[in-house]
Design a protein around this nucleic acid. Structure first.
Lengths: 212, 212
DNA sequence: GGGTCAATGTGACAATGGTTACTGAACCAG
DNA sequence: CTGGTTCAGTAACCATTGTCACATTGACCC
């Protein structure tokens, strides 16, 4: 997929800007696990993800992480937008989840592109969308118990999933032992069947009831 | 203060829109404690607060609340913006904290005003600003212990504060007993002096160390 | 088969926060 | 002054989550 295909809004830019974009900017590929940006860093530019994905997380003092969201190809990074618009530093960390190809739109060019209403609307819409995701996250973290959050997480991953307990714990910002314990509970209730790196959801509606 | 003084961006609207604004819309005054909007409700319009304030909270299943932010005169409500832009329903509750005068800009007029770049930028900037506040909140709720959050809260309120433990608990989304317990601890360490509806901060740097 | 490593199971324990159920102290209205 | 109301202090208890320290299991490679 090309940049223009993934981010069709770019085709609505005036030709002059568009050519400056293709001139000034070239895709780069970074390996999995690269820290693209981090807390307290100034924001360098706006990423367009072509392949792979970026995991955006908040770091706790004790080293644990709380996943905020992911940026997939065609999507955008609300925190970067916010930093660029507010001229503030990052307040989260962005790490490539897998090998990732992306185009980094420099800050100056981003500012210019914001003068184009189509692009502004693009960023704006994504803002609105992500806000409600963040609200959802706040709600989960503040109010739901771990079993509810785990049930939610499982339900969002299809009937048959291939992960380790550690990975699930990471996605919840918790620890493996808790996930193992809760999954055991789910299995005892006949909600899931467990196997090594394997979880089969037997009773989605039962899980939904737990997630309530 | 008039609407135009509190929200100077409105003066940059074309005269036609401005007169339609003053025609179509009149300030209303609502008593303290009025629920202006609530979860799962469609968004009716964009509020400009003239006097008083709106408290925006997330509701827990058990009736407790997590305060997200407040809208003071001259400020804006990011959740409302987000709902209007994304054509989604509210995902939080807005309650007047005191008797409040506000102008409710109807959705249709809001949409039209978004075509004006000055207004769009106004909303945009506020978005960026609030996002980092929300990130801050996520971090607090997810990572900090209650004593740290309480210390933070106290530090943000000046040397000498006049509140009840209950009010502090509400602002933290916790309960009075916990606040009493923690304040007692702070007092034992000589960080604060307690009185009825009265807390005097004796050692701000000590509190900051707890808030770490 | 045996060794090795990652993934998982598990039990005891600690820390945190919330709940219940009081008591006492200050304040205010009559 | 009195009785009621709000605010604050406190102790016992419980639920949830996290921590530690292992034991076990399965996969895979020689």
């Amino acid at each position: 997929m090309t940049l223009a295909e993934l981010y069709p809004v770019l085709q609505e830019l005036p030709a002059a800007l568009r050519s400056r974009l293709t001139d000034a900017v070239q895709p780069m590929t970074v390996p999995a696990g690269t820290v693209l940006f981090d807390e307290r860093q100034p924001c360098q530019g706006f990423p367009f993800v072509l392949t792979g994905s970026i995991r955006v997380v908040k770091l706790a003092a004790n080293g644990r992480e709380l996943p905020l969201y992911k940026v997939l190809p065609g999507e955008s990074c609300i925190i970067t937008s916010s930093c660029l618009l507010g001229h503030a530093d990052y307040n989260a960390r962005g790490v490539t989840e897998s090998d990732t190809t992306l185009v980094l739109l420099p800050r100056a060019l981003f500012d210019e592109m914001l003068d184009v209403s189509a692009f502004r609307d693009f960023v704006f819409d994504l803002f609105a969308e992500r806000i409600s995701e963040l609200m959802q996250l706040v709600e989960e973290v503040a109010f739901l118990k771990l079993d509810q959050r785990l049930a939610n997480l499982l339900l969002g991953k299809g009937r048959q999933l291939h992960t380790t307990h550690q990975q699930l714990a990471d996605e919840l910002g918790s620890v493996r032992e808790m996930v193992s314990r809760l999954l055991k509970g789910f299995a005892d209730q006949g909600l899931v069947r467990l196997g090594r790196e394997q979880i089969e959801i037997l009773d989605p509606s039962g899980l939904r009831k737990i997630a309530s």
